[in-house]
């Protein structure tokens, strides 16, 4: 019998997800571990190729071939209090969890909604797939969901198609769809990236409110550190398939214990820091070079070739080390930071 501390909803341990093609192996997720506590939000941050989306797809078991979970465990506490390992669950049992227990929203609301069905039909389908209710009852529930995500004139909107709605409205429909079966855990993969800032602010507000009211946990995947600061309790920073830093949000923004995280924050333009006394522009501090491909990683620390703190020791791959209270860093020099 597997045990999980009471307040933990999801425990990812040493997750390994590989893509094998033509004899070459891409270790897109290479030993990732983190916990999601009840009613809290964990943000997974990274640039393209960091493995953040593959991590979320692994948890949903939505990997497409040749992607495969080859190691580690994903322990999940169901709403009945049962603990299951998603990484090893038969697909038939996974179907009872996907959508109902763990729901997901994606970056592009246009491509994740079916253009041929009204939004009402799509929400009703979701409800009736998971619960034995009549069509009339499902429609009532669907209307309540649109009300919940603050879509005005919900009754009329139920009969509209996705193309008749704006981007922000569609993302609300996606959230309504995801929440229609009262999930325990919501995985949000860049849910505001395609939206304008004023609409992003509305959606973040909405997610915070729903979390407060429903008490669900959120795994929030993003590349935007501004959004992380707004929504996360805990932060997991990923680079080339590995966790490089992990910390509660306040600790991470106060003291970055990994040069990559520090570099990411330093290169976001900030006029109060990057402009001189007379208003002249100072140079930004970019991270040199590019993110390496996971099929051609440098030996040792994968960030070392771009790192200004590099020492000879970095040729040896660093483990995740304790760098402060609840703060982990995969850097030999975390104390020097």
């Amino acid at each position: 019998m597997t045990v999980l501390p009471d307040d933990i909803v999801l425990k990812v341990s040493d997750l390994q997800t590989h893509f094998e093609l033509g004899g070459r192996v891409a270790k897109s997720v290479d030993g990732v571990s983190f916990d999601v506590r009840r009613g809290e939000t964990v943000a997974v941050v990274g640039e393209s190729g960091s493995g953040k989306s593959v991590t979320s797809l692994s948890i949903m078991r939505l990997l497409s071939s040749p992607g495969r979970i080859v190691g580690g465990s994903i322990l999940y506490r169901t709403s009945q209090g049962q603990i299951v390992d998603i990484a090893a669950l038969p697909e038939r049992k996974m179907r009872a969890i996907r959508g109902r227990e763990i729901a997901m929203i994606f970056q592009e609301p246009m491509t994740s909604l079916n253009p041929l069905y009204t939004v009402g039909d799509q929400i009703m389908e979701m409800i009736r797939l998971h619960e034995p209710v009549s069509a009339a009852e499902a429609r009532q529930r669907a209307k309540k969901m649109l009300d919940l995500v603050e879509i005005p004139a919900a009754d009329r909107r139920l009969d509209e198609y996705p193309h008749q709605m704006s981007g922000g409205m569609r993302q609300r429909v996606m959230i309504a769809l995801a929440l229609s079966c009262n999930p325990n855990l919501l995985i949000a993969d860049e849910p505001t990236t395609a939206l304008d800032v004023t609409i992003q602010a509305q959606i973040l507000d909405l997610l915070r409110r729903l979390q407060r009211e429903i008490g669900m946990s959120i795994l929030f995947i993003t590349h935007n550190l501004g959004v992380v600061a707004e929504i996360a309790h805990d932060v997991v920073v990923m680079y080339t398939g590995r966790v490089v830093e992990k910390s509660p949000v306040s600790g991470l923004f106060a003291h970055q214990k990994h040069p990559y995280t520090r570099g990411l924050l330093a290169c976001i333009p900030n006029a109060s820091r990057d402009r001189g006394a007379a208003g002249e522009r100072l140079r930004l501090n970019p991270i040199p070079g590019n993110v390496p491909s996971v099929t051609a990683l440098p030996p040792g620390c994968s960030f070392a070739p771009r790192c200004s703190y590099r020492i000879p020791h970095c040729d040896e791959a660093p483990p995740l080390m304790t760098a402060g209270p609840s703060h982990l860093s995969r850097c030999w020099r975390h104390e020097a930071l």
Binding site: P152, S166, G168, M169, D196, V197, T198, I199, Q200, A201, Q202, L204, D205, N224, L225, G226, V227, V228, A229, E230, V249, S250, F253, A254, L265, I268
Partner: peptide, 25 residues
Amino acid sequence: QALLSAAPIPDPAASRQRIVLKGDI
């Protein structure tokens, strides 16, 4: 004012005076 207030600030300690616009463009 609303546009500038909506931009997320990469600092959880920053004070936020957010003006949330209702509806869409």
